[in-house]
Design a protein around this nucleic acid. Structure first.
Lengths: 336, 336
DNA sequence: AATTTTTGCTAAAACGTTTAATTGTATATT
DNA sequence: AATATACAATTAAACGTTTTAGCAAAAATT
């Protein structure tokens, strides 16, 4: 009752392992197996319910047809969507995806890369944690294919798929300004990561252009205390002396926390205050005021990352891996 | 620059493969390797950055320490949470999890089981699709460990982790009755699956007990047209002649669609109509009226499934697998 | 001193593939 | 008729582990 192997098929037909293997891999032409024999083998394989053993195959050819995906927070809809599309698209090329989660913890980042390395994944797609740079560098040094997604480290030579965070932010802010906002607050994570900085810079540049930049309207949130930090930040932005007429939330978790607080405080949106968020949330459908948001091309991001990774994997050893930093454009929902 | 293997370590130290393998697997006692040698080997392994090749190991011992998880819809928060907890817990036992998605399609169900079988996963945790029974039966027949989760097929002997859907439904309905509802509508999927039927039966039994059961208040939704079907269902429930004062939504997607429609129709909740949903949603925090929901013990469900599966995997071949059908209890949020 | 037991290690096979090199025929070309 | 070419298959090694059986030397027991 054990699994049927190539050897079993070979014996059943009275032919060698090699012949069976060639046929089952569609290499009958270079191996020059006769049409009749190929058909017999295929028929037998089907009848005997043959399923290739990918462990053995991976061991032999040195590839496992598996991709390791490390995301920062799988319970966040943005990442679970991303994971979904990566999985779906990778499958088309015969790759399985092992999804793991770091919960934004650097420790887990290290653990996960080790676990996956020992499982011989052919490459990694990673949403790196704040201080995850060393682990990425380690992978690169070992010549393991890596593609970063959503976040990147500009100092190291590694391919990445990002959205153009700066432009996204600029678009968001310009739309607010066009709607008459003058004193716009920013709620953003306190982070060293480049994508956050780009979002902040976009905000700053637009407001400077309109002469209304005021650093005290930038509130940096510690992601370990989102709820309380955002509550405080929103409250302080709404102080009368600030005269704030718009808030830009730089991530979806910040939006969620912020909107909850705005609802609690009964703020009149959009008449007294306009808000723009980064990323869509299912909850927007249930909020009584319209929410404008920066729309990331999640399926395209996933597909691009997979394409990049596979092309790295296919790169013959020795050839240095070409570093590609892809920036995709975002759209503003409800844009005018 | 290739990966270091046991052989490399053995050569470096001038000892045999076997010795290194024994030490690295903590079997130095039965293999009787001297303390000094064991230490030398461990030190060298660390220095040389040894990482075991799990493909080779899996091939040799016939297990891959990998679990295949097949869910129906990873973009549904319930399932992505479940996946998260399964992954987290399985990791503690040294198992990796390959997560795949069927999108409720039987075709994909077949494909996914095949893909994972050929990857030699040690076992499956599956949220089966409507007509997925044959694929489960096939796995059982092949003696591959399987645990169903969230949904089950009572006719086949397979372990499962479910919530007590009948009681959950009874609790929900009783709470509505206790709040004064008399004419309660049910919005549920049209499905042959047992868990749906249990939810329906709980609804029927409670209402029959109170003498207010009216089959025409049950609306069965085709999950391919959730939005439009639910819109129509809600509208028809709200017809004056029905006098409906409560609606029970049997799944979270149905709740979401239903609440949207109720908001659109400006229904006065909870004064004119009370609603209870199955599963929590992030969106509930943003809805202006309170939403009561059936709370499933997601982390416990995940952990239980992993425990069940691992115990099956560990079962020596030949010993028939013990079938365990676990039913966990739900809680009602905001319950009185 | 002869024997058994324990200790510390090794040899080699096996897991299921893939693939380069080889062999033996049949057919085609001179 | 001799040789070259094409065809159809085989042999055997390799991938990196684990594990059983065995061996030699040292220690313990008689």
């Amino acid at each position: 009752m054990t699994r049927v192997s190539i050897k079993n098929i070979a014996q059943a037909i009275g032919v060698s392992n090699a012949t069976v293997s060639l046929v089952l891999n569609g290499k009958e032409k270079d191996g020059r197996v006769s049409k009749e024999m190929a058909d017999r083998i295929r028929k037998a394989a089907k009848e005997m319910n043959y399923e290739p053993n990918n462990l053995a195959r991976g061991l032999r050819i040195g590839r496992s047809q598996t991709i390791g995906l490390i995301v920062a927070d799988i319970s966040n809809l943005f990442f679970s969507n991303l994971a979904f599309h990566i999985q779906e698209y990778a499958e088309k090329f015969g790759y399985s995806v092992i999804i793991t989660n770091t919960n934004e913890s650097d420790l887990k980042m290290e653990k996960m890369t080790n676990v996956l390395k020992s499982r011989s994944v052919d490459g990694f797609i990673i949403v790196p944690t704040e201080s995850g740079q060393p682990y990425i560098e380690d992978l690169i040094k070992r010549n393991i294919p890596v593609v970063l997604i959503d976040r990147s480290f500009p100092e190291i030579a590694v391919s990445s798929v990002m959205v153009d965070n700066y432009s996204a932010s600029v678009k968001a802010l310009k739309s607010m300004v066009n709607q008459g906002c003058r004193n716009i607050g920013l709620i953003i994570y306190k982070s060293e990561l480049k994508h956050m900085d780009d979002r902040k810079q976009g905000y700053i540049d637009v407001l400077e252009e309109y002469g209304s930049y005021n650093p005290s309207l930038i509130k940096e949130i510690n992601y370990l205390n989102i709820t309380s930090d955002v509550e405080i930040a929103v409250e302080s932005l709404l102080l009368k002396e600030n005269n704030v007429d718009g808030i830009f939330f730089a991530t979806n978790s910040l939006s969620m926390a912020g909107i909850k607080q705005l609802m609690r405080l009964n703020v009149d949106i959009p008449d007294k205050l306009k808000i723009v968020c980064f990323d869509k949330s299912d909850a927007f459908d249930f909020i009584q005021f319209p929410v404008t948001y920066v729309q990331q091309p999640i399926p395209e991001m996933g597909r691009t990352a997979v394409d990049l990774l596979i092309s790295q994997i296919k790169q013959p050893l020795g050839v240095p891996k070409e570093v590609q930093r892809i920036e995709l454009q975002t759209k503003l929902s409800n844009s005018f």
